[in-house]
Design a protein around this nucleic acid. Structure first.
Lengths: 196, 196
DNA sequence: CACCGGTACGTACCGGCGGTATGTGAGATA
DNA sequence: TATCTCACATACCGCCGGTACGTACCGGTG
């Protein structure tokens, strides 16, 4: 049953997460105070601590929000029925573009591993971007496109390379050019792994 | 002129950096209080703020300390006079091992980009590990071992992949095995880039 | 040797921030 | 309508980074 109070509650929760995503993106986790977050959401700390156990939990909620949105747009790209290789390439392109959005860049790529701790981050990423990337790699192996290799490891390396590439693009003085270069470099790496 | 006071001063500064490296490694930047740092160094905050402008500056000193030590051991590996390709491989192996040391892993790989900010981190790394890696890649290109490519970009991607690989090893339940797998995977990527 | 200047700290304190304990009023329940 | 409950608001605490100021000791000078 959908009561009135429940709707209000959900609404303020959303407002808190919205505010958190905004401020964490602009000022980072350490640079954002909870007073700012609740002020922007037009509530008080009482509301925040009613919905979340603390600052960390609020960050994880923001993390989940951003990642969920990202997964949606990425799966849309990947669920075409083209050749596995071409689909994978399209997915990589889409992911690099995602990494250039400030929200994703700051919260997911840069801060999450430190704020959540590497272990917790790794665990959470299983259900989000990294999980998607790993299944993509698995598909390529199954399709015989790239040589047999420990999928987990290869996916980790690729994930790291992609993040570094995206950061490079983002802080470049000529993002367009750097973007093309990064894409070409990644494609070259993949071609090097491809079976003849 | 080497005065007595200068020696004392240098000594307390070293003690502060030692303490900082220790605590930042164990508890991270945010989890370490300056009171703990000065207590372990057996001084007070007055001494700390005499030598460093603040917590950030102290972190950068710790960063420089750890990186300097790393560079020393890495250049020792690289300055053999073997074939460029073999030297590069040896360097990569040595770097992965470095990343498994807790100090390097926590302070340099995980926290530095967030604490210092990506731009500042990138700038600092020019004189340390990344600088070394990039010149190594440049040497391989010059020697005709790998195909022409924007060296900066390739080095960035490699750097990201190596960091991810090292983190994977460190948090693995079977580090020995994972270590071998990561090394093999990296070698395969490099072989894919090698000229025929 | 007396004096003095400056450096290398120590001490006391402030403001801000994360977190907590407790009050309260609107909406659900009977 | 009376009561209960939950979704907040309010007030407060302890810690921590940073600052202002005091001080003792070393090193040079007459």
């Amino acid at each position: 049953m959908r009561t009135r109070r429940a709707e209000y509650s959900e609404s303020t929760r959303q407002a808190l997460v919205d505010s958190a995503v905004d401020l964490f993106t602009k000022r980072g986790y350490a640079g954002t105070s909870l007073d700012e977050v609740v002020k922007r959401a037009r509530v008080t700390k009482g509301a925040l601590y009613h919905h979340f156990s603390g600052k960390q939990a609020l960050f994880e909620a923001a993390f989940a929000r951003v990642e969920t949105k990202a997964i949606e747009s990425l799966t849309a790209v990947v669920t075409g029925d083209g050749a596995p290789w071409d689909t994978a390439i399209a997915g990589l392109r889409a992911y690099v573009r995602k990494c250039l959005e400030p929200e994703y860049q700051r919260i997911i790529v840069h801060e999450a591993p430190v704020v959540m701790g590497w272990e917790r981050w790794r665990e959470a990423e299983e259900h989000f971007s990294f999980g998607l990337l790993r299944t993509a790699v698995q598909l390529l192996v199954d399709a015989g496109e790239i040589e047999e290799a420990p999928v987990e490891i290869m996916a980790r390396l690729l994930f790291g390379a992609l993040s570094a590439g995206a950061s490079t693009i983002a802080s470049s003085s000529d993002p367009k050019r750097t973007g093309r270069e990064v894409e070409r470099a990644i494609l070259r790496v993949l071609e090097g792994l491809r079976k003849k």
